[in-house]
Write a protein that binds this DNA or RNA. Structure first.
Lengths: 263, 263
DNA sequence: CCCTGTGGTTTATTATTGACACCGACGGTT
DNA sequence: AACCGTCGGTGTCAATAATAAACCACAGGG
């Protein structure tokens, strides 16, 4: 099932903001791969700069190679920088935390965050992996994605992140139908307690969702006023973003956005 | 010799600013790996978000995963952002292009560029891989690196990038001895014709070189005045950078820098 | 002094690779 | 239309390279 390089690449995902350096044994334990195998893979990945070993400690961390690759992608297809502008306007206008994520394999990769300067706000870790089924961003991506992408995503077990997470794929598919009609998605504490998320999709040149831009609000503070305001702001930014990255929104989304604007 | 994951990771290095999207057959040809194998690897790497296939065309490109990983590294160990400030001051002060690179495996990864606004300037591609033996940045890293690192780097064939490139490892080792005494390295068209590079090392917390910061000048424009001015500016920025990233310069480098300041 | 943790290395087994042939599709020429 | 070369992708099967389990040396703690 899982090939050799899949095991190697899966090691990369264990590195996070909260745990940026990990040792050999720890990685072996977490990945379920044999220690010797992990070691060999680590050596190779260090050799290619994806990881690096601090000569100092015996820990491994993400290497300079990932910075280089990100630069290559960003200079060829500038999306990260384009998103950041929208995120800053969103958080400034709404006073809430905004974040953007891109489709990355079978999940979403957070590639930008702009936190509000308010005292009580949702704090997000940059570079986090977001599940597709429990986040507003994920729902909105699934809603406008190709059927085969949805099937692949929902074929895995849907992990219950909170007590409100939808874990039944058929219920979730019905939910996606609603999202297709409204053009945006809401996630009321389905991914994290006390966090209410609202998201709209951003499209690729081929009409499939490239990712999503979202606003996260402390659940207790969400009002129908803020909700409406947020959705309007998101639709506005989504249009700019699609223009900025050359994305072509699907007809379904354009229709939904038009319906919202009219209401 | 070359392991499976090494072959897979080597595919990533074929993506560059000038060629950000590559097809299956092309990758198979360039890497020398069988087409079927390359395809299997590409599927896996797409699955983990390191690559992505434009649904539109049949080409592959670097995926959103690399942006995410870069963010994770950058939030945990901010170096890219720290370097950018120094590069901007360097290019502003000298009117020449400045760039920074980090040790990445057995080579250097360019992670920052600041081009001067002058008409005639050296233009660098961001995210390029720089050889250790033919660039000023490489020399200065090798000069202060641990012996085993130098040996590994020089064990491979030294490719002649220009007619002036040093390709003999023993001659190069003698050159490194000079660099150790001066604290900076110069590369007069040894990596690229008409480009004169000057570089100083930046250190890691353990006293080994983390990378280098360099200025690239059109060779015909280099004068002894500009040279002296550049070196002084580089030493100044190197000190700030070492402080900024918590690096501890080796005693050898500190001594060399002191000698230059005194002269 | 044993016990458990670490990073790292060895060897028999097993799963992965690579060569090659093939498919359907696309785009030019003839 | 028929032909040609290319593309992305799939299948099979022998050979090879990766894996897993055991093992080392070392470091700290009880």
């Amino acid at each position: 099932m899982s090939s050799t390089v899949a095991k190697a690449l899966s090691l990369l995902d264990f590195f996070s903001e909260s745990e940026p350096e990990i040792g050999l044994s720890e990685l072996a334990r977490r990945s379920g791969v044999d220690k010797a195998t992990v070691h060999r893979m680590l050596v190779v990945m260090c050799d290619y700069g994806l990881l690096e070993k601090r000569g100092d400690a015996r820990l491994y961390r993400l290497g300079a190679g990932v910075l280089r690759l990100a630069r290559v992608r960003e200079t060829a297809f500038p999306v990260s920088s384009v998103f950041q502008h929208s995120l800053d306007s969103l958080s400034a206008a709404l006073g809430e935390t905004a974040h953007a994520s891109l489709v990355s394999g079978r999940a979403l990769a957070t590639i930008g965050v702009s936190e509000s300067n308010r005292g009580s706000r949702v704090s997000l870790v940059a570079g986090e992996i977001l599940p597709l089924h429990s986040t507003a961003s994920g729902l909105v991506v699934l809603a406008f994605a190709r059927p085969d992408f949805v099937d692949r995503a929902l074929s895995e077990a849907l992990l219950a992140k909170t007590s409100r997470t939808i874990t039944d794929s058929s219920i979730l598919k019905a939910r996606l139908q609603e999202v297709r009609l409204t053009g945006y998605a809401e996630a009321d504490q389905t991914n994290e307690d006390d966090v209410y998320g609202i998201a709209v999709p951003v499209f690729d040149t081929d009409g499939t969702p490239a990712g999503a831009v979202a606003v996260a609000v402390p659940a207790h503070r969400m009002t129908s006023d803020l909700r409406r305001q947020t959705i309007a702001a998101l639709f506005g930014e989504a249009e700019k973003l699609n223009y900025g990255i050359g994305g072509r929104p699907s007809a379904e989304f354009r229709a939904a956005a038009a319906r919202f604007a009219q209401s």
